[in-house]
Amino acid sequence: MTVENQNMLIMKHVSKTFNPGTVNEKCALMDLNLELKAGDFATIVGSNGAGKSTLFNAITGAFFADKGLVMLDGEDITYEKEHVRSRVIGHLFQDPLKGTAPHMTIEENMALAFLRASTSKNAYFSRIKSTDKKKFREHLALLDMGLEDRMKQPVGLLSGGQRQALTLLMATMVTPKILLLDEHTAALDPATAGKVLGLTKRIVAEQKITCLMVTHNMQQALELGNRTLMMDSGNIVFDVSGEERNKMTVDDLLKQFAVSAGKKLDNDRILFSKVQS
């Protein structure tokens, strides 16, 4: 097995049930299996409640899976603490306010992101050096948003798009083993969303990051990356890549949604997702 073919992420028989044994019992992940090769960029579509965010949370460790194995780069991280595995996982949320500390300056936010790089205890008492500042400036300049001249300003003064771009930069400053994008452009205006998305594509391609991206935009789901996954009722019901994916249209994908969901066509969630798209 060559390095390129190695699986970066392996999930085996992962299940997660919320509120077990109560009327609110909700099976968010049901015996889910997923393998992601190093350098894969997969988009995920699925209706609300299909388990997309739960899948991400099982990977980041926001909660632990009830059953099953989560393996990242050959390491079993199923019960690894969240802050430990966060060192190698980048995570962007839909809400641009979630990724940065508003009352701290751009420079200080970046220093925090950079903290992930070093595991030595001494780093905790080190201060931001001028070489660090220079590095942060160079990184910020890549965004082409003029942020490199505003490093002493609190992040709270930036727009949502700028904050999301900064979050993306912070998540990838130290190349993560996997980058999880949870509808990270959904809350931005179309122009800004396009810019952040372009940036995402460039950074992911440049650093060859393994990436999972949730989107509700069917067009995006087919255009971005090299693989498209569809989730329903806590499982991956459709998985397409390569030539077959290249030929797919948005309509095909929507039809597939109906086929994959199979017997559960009467499920109003599917109808809802059709209306949405």
Partner: peptide, 28 residues
Amino acid sequence: LFLNTRMGLSIRATGDNPDMVRASSINT
């Protein structure tokens, strides 16, 4: 001085944005 070290920054971020801290490698 302490609050401007990396550890100080981590403490400040913990109070400033718990969501962010949870997704980063900081042990709250």
